[in-house]
């Protein structure tokens, strides 16, 4: 388990927290909960209810969406410094994807209550956090568009479907 100093040093490298000042980051680090995962273990499934986001401290995870039977489409992979599940900090909707460990992993969980405290105690730190989050959202939105295009292209190529001449 990392010491508080190591956790703060790690958070400093995470894009979401890079603009948050040291004291606020140290306070935030105290509210993070460590969550170990074995290789292959499912952290959460699409449809689960949750109120926390996760930051990958160690290991790698696969983010997927069920397609049919036991087959799921891989949406993304997450490694050290990456984060996911942030949507549940803002809405109470069920999880939108399934996340499992590709190797033994350690995650840091940040829940809605900790986020609310940060917003109350240090609006400046919260603003930095949300600004970084919006930037990440934009990138992910663009990546989603690219993924949709790639999947569509795959479908057209795999089925030999011809739309050019219709």
């Amino acid at each position: 388990m990392p010491s508080p100093t190591e956790t703060v040093a790690f958070l400093r490298q995470v894009r979401l927290f890079k603009d948050i000042a040291e004291p606020e980051l140290a306070t935030l680090a105290q509210s993070l909960r460590e969550r170990p995962l074995r290789r292959g273990q499912v952290l959460l499934r699409e449809g689960d209810v949750g109120e926390e986001m996760f930051i990958v401290l160690r290991g790698s995870l696969v983010i997927s969406k069920p397609v049919t039977g036991r087959v799921e489409q891989v949406l993304a992979r997450a490694g050290p410094g990456d984060f996911f599940g942030e949507m549940s900090l803002f809405d109470r909707a069920p999880r939108s994807a399934t996340i499992q460990a590709d190797s033994d992993a350690i995650l840091l969980a940040l829940d809605r209550e900790a986020m609310r405290r940060l917003t109350e105690v240090s609006p400046r730190a919260a603003a930095a956090f949300f600004h970084a989050l919006v930037q990440v959202f934009i990138e992910r939105l663009r990546a989603s568009g690219d993924l949709v295009a790639e999947v569509t292209r795959w479908g057209l190529e795999a089925t030999g479907l011809d739309l050019d001449s219709r």
């Binding site: 290789r39 292959g40 273990q41 499912v42 696969v62 997927s64 397609v67 036991r70 087959v71 799921e72 489409q73 891989v74 499992q100 590709d102 790639e150 999947v151 292209r153 795959w154 190529e157």
Partner: peptide, 17 residues
């Protein structure tokens, strides 16, 4: 184009990509 698919194993918790 290539697709990455995750296929769950029945025997254990594991999966293959």
């Amino acid at each position: 184009a290539r697709l990455e698919l995750l296929v769950r194993r029945d025997a254990d918790e594991g999966f293959d990509v």
